[in-house]
């Protein structure tokens, strides 16, 4: 699927793993949260970078102590109406100091890109049928921010 990283089209170097079979592959693995819980030690011992896919139902506590081992956290947006991922991304940055890539996966389309960016998501896995180069303009549709967020923590009253 088309990928945008830091507002640019990008190639996806990650292998998405959703079954135990897949864990044996080499390279950068992006594994589902349940698989991570079960195989964390084995995964941490292997070569190659690691990423985990979380969603609004994931109980994140077991993951937090290993955040510095992760190069990527993918936040799933199961539908465009499910906004939990915005808070999850912000908390990863704001509370847990995660500095790696946060990638939106699932229902990721034009009209949520800017909000996602503001919440600390810097990569976007866009369904092929919804991708167009034009959508990169989404980030700059609105340039005024009343709130502080992860792109700029200063609310409007601290910006000058």
């Amino acid at each position: 699927m088309p990928l945008i990283i830091d507002r640019q089209p990008a190639a996806d170097t990650w292998v998405r793993v959703d079954s135990e079979e897949g864990l044996k592959q080499s390279g950068d693995l992006l594994v589902d949260f349940a698989l991570w819980l079960e195989h964390a030690d084995q995964l941490k011992a292997r070569d190659g970078r690691l990423g985990v896919v979380i969603d609004g139902d994931s109980e994140l506590d077991p993951l937090l102590s290993d955040l510095d081992r992760l190069a990527l956290v993918a936040v799933a947006f199961p539908s465009f109406a499910d906004g939990r991922g915005f808070s999850l991304a912000r908390m990863l940055r704001q509370h847990h100091g995660f500095t790696g890539e946060i990638r939106a996966v699932g229902d990721v389309t034009w009209d949520r890109l800017r909000y996602m960016a503001r919440c600390g998501i810097n990569a976007y896995d866009v369904p092929a049928e919804r991708y167009s180069d034009d959508m990169l303009s989404a980030f700059d549709e609105i340039t005024v921010c009343y709130q502080g967020a992860e792109d700029d923590p200063r609310p409007i009253y601290r910006q000058s």
């Binding site: 465009f80 109406a81 915005f86 949520r112 909000y115 009343y146 967020a149 409007i156």
Partner: peptide, 12 residues
Amino acid sequence: QWAALHPEFAYL
């Protein structure tokens, strides 16, 4: 002002 286009709370 805080609520207007708040990036985290547009899909409650």
